[in-house]
Amino acid sequence: MTEKKEHPSIGEFKEFVKKHPKLITEVRKGEKKWQELFEDWYLLGENDVSWKKYREESDESESTAEKKSDFMSRMMTAVKSMDANQMNQHLYNMNNTISSIQNLFSTFGLTKGSSSSQSNTPNHPFSFRKD
């Protein structure tokens, strides 16, 4: 018998599927067909954004590491561009607001130390008597 030689693009597609193992589960679930995936791969190419969700977990962890480093660089840029005097003014305003709220609580007797009505009640909610 003669062996059937496959087209080179089929071999490339097999390598692509190995890099994107979630495609196999999509086909097994019946959500996609191999023919559809091959056509999409052939038309869109291997580097299309639509393939990201089918990549291995290690690729996703690399992208989360990139996101974390991007976040950190944005935070550092924001800290560098802050005005210290303006931040000091905001902190002063917050401190005054918190002090005002604490004064209101103490005026209306809502602080922890002023719970005198609860101190008269017994510690045990159920009183059992011995006969």
Rank of each mutant, 00 (worst) to 15 (best):
K53P: 15
V79Y: 05
T111C: 09
S99D: 13
F126T: 09
H124D: 13
K67R: 11
M82E: 06
E39Y: 09
E57M: 15
E36M: 03
S100T: 11
L110N: 08
N96L: 05
M72I: 04
Y54A: 08
N120H: 03
S81G: 01
T64G: 00
N93F: 08
N93I: 04
L37S: 13
H90C: 15
K68V: 10
M75P: 01
A84V: 11
T97P: 01
Y54P: 05
L104A: 12
L110S: 09
A84E: 09
V49T: 06
E57N: 15
V27D: 00
S58L: 14
H20S: 13
T111S: 13
T77F: 06
D40A: 03
S9P: 00
M72W: 02
P8D: 05
K52I: 06
T111D: 15
S73L: 00
P21K: 02
F16A: 00
N120Y: 07
S117A: 15
P8E: 10
N47E: 10
T77R: 15
E12L: 07
F128C: 03
K67A: 14
M94H: 12
V79F: 12
P122G: 02
T2S: 03
M72R: 09
V79D: 09
H90K: 14
M82C: 11
M75N: 11
S106T: 12
